[in-house]
Design a protein around this nucleic acid. Sequence first.
DNA 1: CTGATTATTTAGAGTCATCTAAATATTGAC
DNA 2: GTCAATATTTAGATGACTCTAAATAATCAG
Lengths: 221, 221
Amino acid sequence: MHSVIVENYIKTIYQLENLEGRATTSLLSEKMQVSPATATDMMKRLADEGIVRHEPYRGVRLTGRGKKHALKIIRRHRLWELFLVQVLDFEWHEIHEEAELLEHCTSEKLEARLDEYLGHPTVDPHGHAIPNSNGEIPNIEYIPLASANPGDTVRLRRVNDDSSDVLQYLSQLGIELGSDLAIVEKIAFDGTMRVRVDGGEQFISEKLANHLFGELMKGGA
Amino acid sequence: MHSVIVENYIKTIYQLENLEGRATTSLLSEKMQVSPATATDMMKRLADEGIVRHEPYRGVRLTGRGKKHALKIIRRHRLWELFLVQVLDFEWHEIHEEAELLEHCTSEKLEARLDEYLGHPTVDPHGHAIPNSNGEIPNIEYIPLASANPGDTVRLRRVNDDSSDVLQYLSQLGIELGSDLAIVEKIAFDGTMRVRVDGGEQFISEKLANHLFGELMKGGA
DNA sequence: CTGATTATTTAGAGTCATCTAAATATTGAC
DNA sequence: GTCAATATTTAGATGACTCTAAATAATCAG
Ligand SMILES: [Mn+2]
Ligand SMILES: [Mn+2]
Ligand SMILES: [Mn+2]
Ligand SMILES: [Mn+2]
């Protein structure tokens, strides 16, 4: 089995690949908070193990096996997040760091029991899809809030940000998964949005709006 | 914070100290499955950190701080064991190895939530006392089954053995915490006991009987 | 297309946890 | 009490993961 450290590299490579097409030395070194030299070493090591394919000077991509590894870890992460919220009454901003640790000490059996206890869930508390036990993950298409226009209403389905601060801030604004965000105004200057949520009005920066995903509701209400 | 490895040394030293008065190089190296040289190194390192007091050539004893560390880890271990049984429906022989991992990835908050969810429990599924959040652990006195005599009945309260095999074997014999074991006969030759449990009769070796603890019931039934 | 900038890799070294082999201290048999 | 057997420590070395500094490759501006 792999060390916690190696598992974290694999997961990070998966995320970078999804986000940027592939994991380059500099992206990986930044995400993992290590020097570029260290990232290069690890990429070569994972290539030797058949977890990634390495094209020198242009980064790595996961092999099929590598993808399976990554999805297993992500599955465990998301099952734990959901478990912490549903069973132990954690808030959605308190769970990511816990799951970052728990994902590495989860046996097959424990994973299966969590999954069963939770009723084979398909999304975690942030709206991220939970890969199934075969490592298959559905690709549900939502639109970023930032792409919607005044008059539109977006039902929030996913928050693409793990930072505790952002999630806590959203809670403060009364925004959670399932909330309907009615766009009142989009300020041309900086893209900030004025939205109505549960009767109140809130401002959402363009940066934040790019991390909020949901469905466009017909008829604007 | 300490690495998983160091936490395991601390916990093992605690257990050896309870069992043998103190942790010697050879005992520690055996329990930790490392060479004596490695055990010596770690004892010196922990001494430098103020976790243990080291008398060269005669082993280590935990300091007050060291004891607190150990009890924290043991608390987490036992909370997890209970959680796995009560919530996720594990059997008592399946939980120790899981808890060996989970005990090292448990935040203060997670520990508190587990404790709360379980209703501030005082014993784990093997009958071991769970230290409270101040690191206090009650010392409940039970007698080993091996010390009882024909005619006595012992109500099982604790199994001092983490091995999955032993626990599974006891389950097979229909023996669990709370079971009343009525000693029918003690074979002089090797100390094997014939006991009546739930109507049936079972043989229990002296070695096993020394790992089973309970209360002597008045009146023999 | 060339030179400068930026990204990546290589070289050399350090820490942590481990080992084996050798040196030293303690214990126990006579 | 002496000496052999046993336990412990010391010395020197290794693998995993990390670093900084130097070398090299890729990219981009003009
Ligand atoms: Mn997360
Ligand atoms: Mn999540
Ligand atoms: Mn246990
Ligand atoms: Mn236990």
